[in-house]
């Protein structure tokens, strides 16, 4: 009994043990390097294609601004949800976050964009604001008259028989200018994001 007590006293009265017992702390946890944090710039040149802004699901999380060094994407902390879609969408690899770029390289994946335009014919009153405002239409037919009437059928949007008609949806760049200019909220642009595996083999 006495020997046993002595043994315990000897064991637990060591200064080293007492100090460890009273002041033990687990090491502060570090954020691992592979964590998909806020996107950072890689230093590559941004060409202002705005795919990051189209892919971003959070309102106001990313915009592309003109700086003295050229166009630069800017992440707004407090809006960004760290999903990494802007990193995947960028065709130039301007942004990086975690292991997204590496895994895209090894898995040979990329995001492809397509757009769908829905016109609510009950709401559309055929004013032609969308067709006149559309920057794609502007390139094809700069002479387009007010009201959205035009002679050519190569346009993206055109007004015929008093309603807006979508002629070539594949020409849409997803800028949503038509949506902003519609007085009646009749036109809606849906951006469809598709993850494509092995894009070279498909094409």
């Amino acid at each position: 009994m006495a020997i046993s007590l002595l043994y315990y006293a000897q064991e637990f009265l060591r200064g080293e043990w007492v100090k460890k017992f009273l002041a033990a702390k687990t090491a502060p946890l570090q954020i691992p390097t592979y964590f998909r944090n806020y996107p950072e710039l890689t230093g590559k040149t941004c060409t202002h294609q705005l795919y990051c802004m189209m892919a971003c699901p959070a309102p106001g999380a990313i915009d592309v601004v003109m700086t003295p060094d050229g166009w630069m994407p800017r992440i707004h902390v407090g809006h960004c949800i760290r999903c990494g879609l802007c990193v995947e969408a960028c065709p130039n690899g301007v942004l990086t976050s975690g292991r997204i770029l590496e895994s895209m390289f090894y898995d040979n994946t990329k995001l492809s964009f397509s757009f769908r335009i829905d016109v609510d014919t009950d709401k559309c009153m055929g004013c032609g604001n969308c067709a006149v405002a559309c920057p794609v239409n502007k390139l094809i037919d700069a002479q387009m008259s007010h009201g959205g009437r035009a002679s050519t059928d190569e346009l993206l949007l055109k007004v015929s028989e008093g309603k807006c008609q979508v002629l070539h949806v594949e020409k849409c760049t997803g800028c949503k200018t038509c949506e902003h200019h519609c007085p009646n909220e009749a036109i809606r642009v849906a951006r469809l994001l598709e993850a494509v595996h092995a894009p070279e083999e498909e094409l």
Partner: peptide, 12 residues
Amino acid sequence: GNCPISGCLFNR
């Protein structure tokens, strides 16, 4: 989180 700061995805 983002929601009390900006409303994040819900602020539409």
